[in-house]
Nucleic acid binder design. Structure first.
Lengths: 344, 344
DNA sequence: ATGAAAGCGCTAACAG
DNA sequence: CTGTTAGCGCTTTCAT
């Protein structure tokens, strides 16, 4: 309860009859300070319950030791693992993070960016909302020379630093796998094609079809938000198609799970009637029936890489302006939902 | 790129030929400042690209406007919704949050607490790790009069402020529901009983059995961590029991989903052979087969309530020392996994 | 309605 | 190896 006065380096200095500067240096392990005084300083600090005043320090040093993180959502295991990766690296480097999430709204994203700018973060890690059309709200950072690393949901044609997977390749692999299983009519359920991840995956899908001489049929493309409702509607749409598709590549595991459930309720057999491939390798994929074939996507690594690059830049160890695009590995995880031919 | 100098209130003052004090007051809408100067101040600030230096401000005001959040994990939709609730309220009130998670380790939790203490958070919201045995690492906060609100995983016998659901009642309702479905031998899969949430649910389970004259059989209690592996092992253990249980109350939806999968693989019919009730109402419950009966548990509300109470205390609007325990509503969501008798 | 001045706690340049 | 000093940008008495 006792709201005692905070201990400052002046208090320590007085007690030890040395100068505040010496205390400050000692606390930071400055080699110019003798072992013995350092020891005394640390002991007294501990004993008096001293804690650094980060505000005084930051005010003086003109840096916040804080990095901002803007996420489009944090409801998937993918996003939380990215966050965990970021957190690990930033904490090790002594940085705080301020997390803001846009709930997939470009407007909220802009507000978050503004807020973080005013909070003077030293750097920014961001994943764009699905409807973010331009990067204007990041201009202020760029003008002030505050580094930004984008991950996953990015603007690919700009010259910003981005950490991504090869979405086109993943789309290709997923579709090719369905073709290899004998699918001839492959639908694709995805979200807004203005967002890089979805357009790239779609490109890969198209390429796989083209290479295998399957005509691209636009009526097999279903664009939705990635909600449960959208999954149910997409499944209904699939059911109405004539002839019915025999394979679906779905850009998100959760929606894939919803689709599978809905299709099964309608009497469709998965994978016999329709083979399905998802995306993300969420925990859910192993628990539904049949287990879901999906693209594995290393969230933790992406987070770590994004954070490490940002921090190295901040420290001057490396320079972000040289490394534009970092591509993280990804792979196909084959489970029952796609195996028309049995285990390959 | 241009790393221009930061604009301060002095720059604004100089430009307007008024004093910095007036600028400061104007920026804070102090009524002593005339409408006209205020307007000029705001315009000039905007025009010059002024941003508040929170460090100078906090240094001066001796408060951080930051609250710390310690979570035992953030991998469930329950935890992320709590976080969303906290974020909503704190952001509205102009507070930042620093999020730390302990990965269910008491040691990491203590380290996080220490870190947040040194960061001088104005208040703390925390959920305990499964193996946190005492609250010693929060002593420093209490000594300094820094308010703490615990939620969900709490130490129930202390006199701290806690936001929880009535776990005993939930355990009771879940078990009673199984009994009503005709179950006579009900197993319980849970985690360490030293943690309040689990011990309370167990109490409710026991009470429901006792009230219905079912003998409590300790061999039907399985204690595990809540991993996938643990779920598989628990299911194996269930299969070996003789006679086999006809109902299971599982303290976590994810583990319940794993169990169901494993039991089904062994040829058990759910709910005919074994009825199952989970806990948490995770998204997963609606997607597995059969859909999972579970306890719904309002994460968002818990987060909002915890944050609101903390902030009101900080503002002096209310006092945490008066409100010790806040109980949030919760209810049973009935789905197929428990319906031996068909829809009730 | 506005200004002058002090000080929050720390660090860095300079001096010794 | 250690001390002196100034100042980071803001708020807040006290004056006027």
């Amino acid at each position: 309860m006792a709201n005692e006065k905070e201990v400052t380096i002046y208090d320590i200095a007085k007690k030890l009859k040395i100068s505040p500067a010496t205390v400050s240096r000692g606390l930071h392990n400055n080699p110019a300070i003798s072992k013995i005084t350092k020891k005394k300083i640390f002991e007294t600090a501990e004993e008096m319950g001293y804690r650094t005043n980060h505000f005084a320090r930051n005010l003086r040093q003109q840096q916040t030791k804080t990095i901002g993180v803007i996420m489009h959502e944090l409801n998937s295991s993918f996003m939380t693992s990215v966050l965990a990766g970021i957190e690990k690296i930033t904490t090790e480097a002594g940085y705080d993070i301020i997390i803001a999430h846009s709930s997939e709204s470009a407007k909220k994203e802009a507000a978050n960016a503004k807020n973080l700018f005013h909070k003077r973060v030293d750097g920014l890690i961001a994943s764009l909302a699905v409807d973010t059309a331009d990067l204007d709200h990041y201009k202020s950072f760029i003008n002030k020379g505050i580094p930004i690393v984008f991950f996953d949901r990015v603007e690919q044609n700009g010259n910003n630093t981005v950490v991504i997977i090869d979405n086109a390749k993943c789309g290709y692999i997923a579709t090719k796998h369905l073709i290899d299983q004998g699918c001839k009519r492959i639908a694709h359920i995805t979200s807004s094609l203005t967002r890089n991840v979805y357009s790239e995956r779609y490109k890969g899908y198209q390429q796989a079809l083209a290479e295998n001489k399957i005509k691209i049929d636009e009526s097999l493309l279903i664009i939705s938000d990635l909600s449960e409702k959208a999954g149910i509607e997409a499944a209904a749409q699939i059911l109405k198609m004539k002839p019915r598709p025999d394979g679906i590549f779905i850009t998100n595991d959760f929606v894939a799970a919803v689709c599978i459930r809905t299709l099964k309720e309608a009497g469709i057999k998965i994978p016999e009637d329709i083979a399905i491939v998802g995306f993300n390798n969420d925990a859910i994929g192993k628990l539904i029936e049949p287990a879901l074939t999906t693209i594995n996507y290393p969230g933790n690594d992406m987070g770590e890489i994004a954070a490490r690059n940002l921090i190295n830049h901040l420290k001057g160890v490396s320079n972000l302006e040289q490394t534009n695009t970092i591509i993280v590995r990804s792979d196909l995880v084959i489970r029952k939902s796609s195996l028309k031919k049995g285990v390959s």
